[in-house]
Structures are given as structure tokens and as C-alpha cells.
Design a protein around this nucleic acid. Structure first.
Lengths: 253, 253
DNA sequence: TCACCTTGTTGATCAATATCAAGGCGCGCC
DNA sequence: GGCGCGCCTTGATATTGATCAACAAGGTGA
């Protein structure tokens, strides 16, 4: 469970994905407003970020600066469910994670996380319109994303779920591949994490990915990197493609 | 599809559920702050509330005053998914509903809804700490609720999902039944709505409810009303019972 | 270099749930 | 009252995806 032992952490990651450029700017601007109150956490895969502040058990707000994290819950007698995947610019408040549900905030790779007391964040929001609108946009995006996620888990079959997930990653973190029509991105999550996110068995997920490769939508690629050969073909497999594009843009399309 | 034709709308509803008492007070206090900007919508079952404001296509914020509403999305080629059920005190912003996903806000019964321009709501939040904290608490609760919902759809089997749903309704809107240990509440949603919420087939849902009745957890009850004979037994069937109680209280337990 | 461990892949089997079909019930409408 | 229409229920069947088990691939540390 130590991050050093995990091969995934040794993979040379992309630099910040290009998509995040404008977000990175906004985050830098935010930092000016927040910095006196922010604790910076360097994340490493496998570590477990505590959701509430130690002192006084206060509520905390987290802002993802770089890297990817998963938010998971585990109900007694069932396996873990990843309820959200957080990318740079996303916000998590400890109140978002239900109590008594074994909630966890787990980095998927190395990155940086800002943490601040929730009450401080609320105050800053009231004073600084830029902070407030950053927060509200983050909430909007996350709520919309969760709606799509619920629809995928509740209504999509196995292949549709996998296509939806890959499309989301491609739109959020992908770079156009040299050969036209394709997209490349890092896969920050393990098979098991992805399966837990999609409400699927890891075996079934593996089979589905294999089928996507043999049908030519994906390329056989190196470990922890995904090469989508034809993004439009992938989009055609996901009922949520239009919604995802509306939410995350068609930058790589 | 007219509400008058629907038998459900003719059922005499409970008055505001007792749980909502403190919430009702808060809503009344809020109204003072918001009233100059609020449009009050009387909801009727089956109507479709438009999510964006007509003029300028602006974003809107909705606050549920009374009644129950469902938020649904439908991706092409799949059936509808209910992504949230809104009760009095809940908030919905149009940005929460993904675009290009056929999002709908649909009252399940008669009630009252406040609508205001999102930008106005944001301004009021910055000025009035009571408005801001109301909003943030609503967001926290809804995010936590959605996490439980995702876990239920992704990991629970059929009976666990149904038990979780019934428990949530019991905790949020139930009243203790005369005979000890039991709880009674209105069922505001049709079988199909519930099935769409739980990611189940309506037939399967019906079967599961029948089994819960014959196993003695539920009473055979009149149409659109549910009598839980033994709430603890119901809780034992739901892996999320502790999380739900932490979120909604043990008032009726 | 080799043993070991984690992660991922693949095949065979089985169970849960969707699908299809038929029928009952309650209610509004004619 | 009788008719027609949704909604709900229940049974028979089909199919998807979970489970179990074996094995491959790659990294780690001695």
C-alpha cells in the first residue's frame, strides 16, 4: 500500500494536460486570494487524505491543484464505490462525503492539493466574487458530472459505461495523437478503481477493454497509457457523448 | 400526461411532514430575504418545470418550498434515470443538470417552488450569511445523498436498493405509526419513477416490494401509502442505513 | 538472476435481473 | 353502469455480467 512500491507512481506523467491551461491560470489567481489560509498537501498514490481537520474536527474544503484523486465510499458488506474522480480545479468539501459510509479521498497519482478550513473558505467566498464564482462553477460541473455518472451506472450496459468513462478522460485530460482522429491520455486509475467507479466487476471491465482493443477503437498501448484510435467511434458507443462534450468541450475532437 | 387525469394527484397528502418543521422555519426566514426576487411556482404532478429562465436563457436557482420533485436525465437510446429526488429545503441550480441530456425537473405531487435568477441568488449569498449557509448546507446534503445513491446503484442488489430507498423516504418524510416500531409515509413517486431512480426494471421492483410485504417488513397498505411494519428490520436490509441515519436523523427510529 | 508479489487477462459456469407476455385492478370518462 | 386506459402484478424465458479459477506480465528486492 506504500506508494513507492506501486509501479503506477513511477510512470512519467504528462505535464499538466493542455486542457487545464485556463484552469491553471484561474487556480494561480485564486492562490493569491487563498494563500494565507491554504495548507498545501503533496499527494502520492495510495495515501489516504483525512477528510476533516484534526483540530476541533472542523469541516474542510479541498481544491485540487494538480493530479487526480478519487472519492470513495464503502457501505458495510458491499465493495467500494468510487463516487467521483477529481481533476485539477475540482473542489471537495468534507460535507460532500456521507458520514458512517467509510468515505475516503485517495490520490491516484502524485499531485498537489490545497486544504483550508471550510468556514474560512465561506468567508472568502462572501468577500471575493472570483472565489465565489470559482466555487459555484466547480459545484455546477461536479453536479452535472455526477448526474451523468448516475445515468451511466443506472442505465448503461457494460460497454457503454466503459466508453463513457474513456471519453470523459479523453475530453478532460487527453492530447490529440499524431495520427489524426486519435487521442492519448494517461490512465491514472487502476483497473480496480475504474471498476469501482463504473459499478462493474474488474474481470468484466478487463474483458470489455480487450474487446474495444480488438474492435479497433483502442490501440494496444503501453501500461497506464490509453491510445484512442478513433474518438468519434468511441463517442458513438457512449449514449452520454453529447452531454460530455457539452460539459468538457470538444478540444480534442 | 395532464395532472388532473392522474389518480396520484387526488390522494390527500399528509400535511408537511413533521421532520420539515425546522426546515420550514428556515425557509420562512429565507423568504424574507429572497421574496423581492422570487417567483413562486405552484407545482402539479406531471408538469415539466423549465430549467432555464426564458429571458436571456439565464441560469436559475430553485428552492423547494413544499412537495416533492424528481430530477431526471435521459441519454439517447437508454431509458430515463432519476438522478435526484428533491424535498422541501432542497436547492437545484440549472447548472446541476447536464446539457444535451434531456434534463427534466418534474413535480411528483402538488407543492410550491421558488425560482430566482442565479446571479441574484449569488449576490444575496454574498451579502446574507444566512442565505449562504442555507445554500451550502443544501449542497452538502445533496452531495452526500448522491454519493449514497451512486453506491446503492453501483454496488447494492435489488433488495438492498429498495430497502435503502424506503428507508430514506421513511427518515425524511415518515411519521411513527400507532403500533410501535412502524413508520408511515406517502409514496410520492410512481413505480416507474422509483425504478428509474434505483436503476431497476419496474417489474423487478414490483416483485421486490411484494417480497418485502410477504416477509412482513412492509404492510399491505392502501395505494400510494407505505406502512413499514418494522423500521429496524428494513434498516437491516440496507447497507446504507447508518449513513442515512447520520444524514437525515433518527427521528422516527 | 530468480523468487515473489501485485496487477491484469481470459475461460467456464452460474445467478441475478431484464425482457416479454398476460392478466387484474382502480379510476376517469362516456 | 360499462368501457377504456394506465398502472401494477406475476409468471416464463433470455441474457448480461459476477464469480471462481488459472495463468500471464511486469516490477521489486534479495
Amino acid at each position: 500500500m506504500t506508494s513507492g512500491a506501486n509501479p503506477r507512481s513511477t510512470v512519467k506523467p504528462f505535464a499538466d494536460p493542455p486542457l487545464a491551461q485556463s484552469k491553471t491560470d484561474r487556480l494561480a489567481a485564486l492562490h493569491a486570494a487563498l494563500s494565507p489560509h491554504v495548507a498545501t498537501i503533496r499527494t502520492r498514490r495510495g495515501q489516504n487524505v483525512t477528510l476533516t481537520l484534526m483540530a476541533e474536527g472542523g469541516e474542510a474544503a479541498f481544491i485540487v491543484r494538480t493530479g487526480v484523486l478519487t472519492v470513495g465510499v464503502t457501505m458495510p458488506g458491499t465493495s467500494r464505490q468510487v463516487v467521483a474522480i477529481l481533476f485539477p480545479g475540482d473542489v471537495l468539501c468534507s460535507g460532500f462525503v456521507p458520514r458512517e459510509a467509510d468515505g475516503t479521498l485517495t490520490p491516484a497519482n502524485a499531485g498537489e492539493l490545497w486544504r483550508l478550513r471550510w468556514s474560512v473558505f465561506a468567508e472568502l467566498s462572501a468577500k471575493d466574487a472570483a472565489v465565489a464564482s470559482f466555487y459555484h462553477e466547480a459545484i455546477d460541473r461536479q453536479m452535472a458530472c455526477r448526474a451523468i455518472h448516475v445515468a451511466a451506472i443506472g442505465q448503461f450496459d457494460c460497454r457503454q459505461r466503459v466508453a463513457t468513462f474513456l471519453l470523459e478522460l479523453a475530453l478532460r485530460t487527453g492530447t490529440p495523437s499524431p495520427s489524426g482522429g486519435g487521442v492519448v491520455f494517461d490512465m491514472p486509475l487502476s483497473r480496480i478503481d475504474v471498476a469501482d467507479y463504473l459499478g462493474l466487476n474488474a474481470d468484466t471491465l478487463s474483458r470489455t477493454m480487450s474487446r474495444l482493443r480488438s474492435s479497433g477503437v483502442l490501440n494496444h498501448s503501453e501500461r497506464n497509457r490509453v491510445v484512442v484510435r478513433d474518438l468519434r467511434a468511441l463517442g458513438a458507443l457512449s449514449p452520454a457523448s453529447r452531454a460530455l462534450i457539452a460539459l468538457y468541450g470538444d478540444r480534442v475532437l
